[in-house]
């Protein structure tokens, strides 16, 4: 009897903890929005953060995009040639990259490359009491430290996703045209006929903006909330990557369900 009660108590405790953290995160994002005036007035703060999260993620994003596109084209060729539909390889790579893989994989890479760095950075500032020092000097740490990182993430994410899709399609082109010998005109022509600017490309950009918002909030919150010790910071960094990856995938499912053209 006591054991069962303990299990139920543990479940309740976890639920309350989860809801508490979620509520705190929502309040924290409200605070960021309220205090984001400085990140636009002193734009150099935000530009510095765009450099650290956006520009520094460029290499990993572009290289992974290239390989993902190349693998997609190779696998697609393997299956499509059974039906004599190799000409559709361009469509396959472009649609899967623009709709899903571009926003999602670049968001996962961004969460692990930039999100973890943001959490570790803010957590370390907290552990070394830099945030407290700022507070003492009447500098709001949310306005000075958190908001620029948040806006930098929101701004960088769609650009990174577009660059990922771009290099992926380039990789698909390399495999399709140079390796398997599909005509370049057919490759691009079929792609242009099948990809819709409004429904495929704009929706992909909307997705990546939403992922950027989610990752930035999670990364800054976990850093700000971290226990001010070395273990606390490392645990917070782990939590950032896990939570951000899970929420990106869950959000992707919900967004896709809304965006697909199922209704006539």
């Amino acid at each position: 009897m006591q054991k069962i009660l303990n299990i139920i108590r543990g479940l309740g405790n976890r639920t309350i903890e989860f809801l508490w953290r979620f509520g705190a995160m929502v309040r924290f994002s409200g605070l960021i929005l309220l205090h984001s005036g400085m990140s636009f007035r002193r734009i150099s703060l935000t530009i510095r953060e765009i450099y650290f999260s956006g520009v520094m993620s460029l290499v990993i994003i572009m290289v992974s995009g290239l390989f993902v596109g190349m693998v997609l084209a190779l696998q697609g060729y393997e299956t499509l040639q059974n039906y004599g539909a190799q000409e559709q390889m361009g469509v396959l790579t472009a649609l899967s990259l623009v709709r899903e893989l571009g926003p999602v994989v670049s968001a996962l890479l961004f969460a692990s490359r930039a999100g973890s760095a943001i959490t570790a950075g803010i957590g370390l500032m907290k552990a070394t009491e830099q945030l407290k020092a700022m507070d003492m000097m009447a500098v709001d740490p949310i306005a000075r430290v958190v908001a620029p990182r948040f806006w930098a993430g929101v701004f960088s994410m769609p650009l990174l996703a577009a660059l990922f899709s771009f290099s992926g399609i380039l990789g698909g082109y390399l495999v399709a045209v140079l390796l398997t010998g599909i005509d370049a005109g057919v490759f691009w022509g079929n792609m242009q006929a099948a990809v819709d600017v409004r429904y495929d490309i704009v929706n992909g950009v909307i997705k990546s903006i939403i992922f950027g918002i989610a990752i930035s909030i999670i990364a800054t919150y976990e850093g700000f909330d971290a226990e001010p010790t070395a273990e606390g910071v490392s645990a917070a960094t782990t939590r950032t990557v896990v939570t951000a990856a899970l929420s990106v995938l869950a959000l992707d499912f919900m967004l896709t369900a809304f965006m697909l053209r199922t209704a006539p």
């Binding site: 623009v98 577009a162 771009f166 242009q192």
Partner: peptide, 12 residues
Amino acid sequence: ALLFLGFQVGGY
């Protein structure tokens, strides 16, 4: 890259 997606891929 966004322009490339819009014009070359989407055929806008």
